[in-house]
């Protein structure tokens, strides 16, 4: 297990990165934290001819609030997001998910955008971004475009980026007052790949009715998937036991997971429902917004 040879570039600015991408296109991969990329290279599942190391592009490392969104740059480490006061305050769902992303040594280097671009349907961050209805800022030498999560995540390990494009920033809407968010995950071990998971965000109106629900399941489909039938069921109503049970059943029905060596599709569908029930009960039992 040793990576194949590659040409190595270490640009200092985004412009240089984009011009290298324009030049090398599909031959190239971006090296940020490398926590998903390098294992694939060591196993030679992936042998890019060119690596563009963006770790010198310090301008791409930021977390800042602007226009009701938290903008997170391409070089922002997961560990930085995990310990960020801004994230803790504005993005409680992301904060709750962060400890589940790999282990400390992964988060010290792995980036938020890198994990999103990896587009793993069992990844925590794609699920959080989907539930938050994040905006993905995609850059290339041709210009910039912005897409939403459902456009960004195409299928398992496949995103919508063109060969000359990179994910330059992700913009995550800040939590509304009175909103509640819960992140849950089932894994065979305390760290490592998940079997199933759920990012859930529910907002309530002054009367205590659910005004907005966004639930995104991990491992319930080929991409991280919004549970729209569950959301529809919750919105406009009050969270009570009957609704919670119904929501769980709807989630199980909505899930389209696949079998693998760690869990059957039936189990994943079942626990997707159980995670929805658990998350909603936690929201009921837990007065304050947050984890």
């Amino acid at each position: 297990m040793k990576p194949a040879a590659f040409k190595y570039f270490r640009p200092d600015t985004l412009e240089e990165v984009l011009s290298l991408l324009a030049e090398h296109g599909a031959e190239a991969r971006i090296l940020a934290g490398g926590q998903s990329l390098v294992p694939l290279m060591n196993m030679r599942i992936l042998s890019p001819a060119v690596l563009i190391d963006i770790n010198r592009c310090r301008d791409l490392a930021y977390l800042r609030e602007e226009g009701g969104m938290v903008a997170c740059g391409a070089l922002t480490r997961q560990g930085e997001a995990e310990t960020s006061a801004l994230v803790a305050d504005r993005l409680p769902l992301l904060a709750a998910a962060m400890p589940h992303v790999g282990v400390r040594a992964n988060r010290n280097f792995g980036t938020v955008c890198g994990s999103l671009a990896h587009a793993d349907p069992l990844g925590e961050l794609p699920s959080v971004a989907t539930a938050l209805e994040a905006r993905f800022v995609i850059a290339s030498a041709r210009g910039r475009r912005e897409v939403d999560a459902e456009e960004f995540f195409v299928s398992a390990l496949t995103n919508c980026l063109e060969p000359d494009e990179m994910l330059a920033e992700v913009r995550l809407p800040v939590a509304a007052a009175g909103g509640k968010s819960v992140f849950l995950e089932i894994a065979n071990r305390a760290h490592g790949f998940a079997v199933a998971g759920l990012a859930a965000l529910v907002e309530f109106d002054a009367g205590g009715r659910c005004s907005r629900a966004r639930l995104s399941a991990m491992g319930a489909g080929d991409t991280t998937a919004r549970l729209r039938t569950v959301e529809a069921l919750l919105e406009g109503g009050t969270l009570d036991d009957a609704v919670i049970r119904e929501a769980g059943a709807a989630a199980t029905k909505a899930a389209e997971p696949s079998d693998d060596v760690h869990a059957s599709a039936a189990y994943r569908a079942h626990v997707t429902g159980s995670l929805v029930r658990k998350a909603l009960r936690q929201m009921l039992g837990n007065g304050e917004q947050g984890r």
């Binding site: 065979n188 071990r189 305390a190 490592g192 693998d260 060596v261 760690h262």
Partner: peptide, 14 residues
């Protein structure tokens, strides 16, 4: 072998 390397091999901290 359809199996995740090493990661499934150790008793969990769970």
């Amino acid at each position: 072998i359809s199996k995740r390397p090493a990661s499934t091999q150790s008793a969990a901290s769970r």
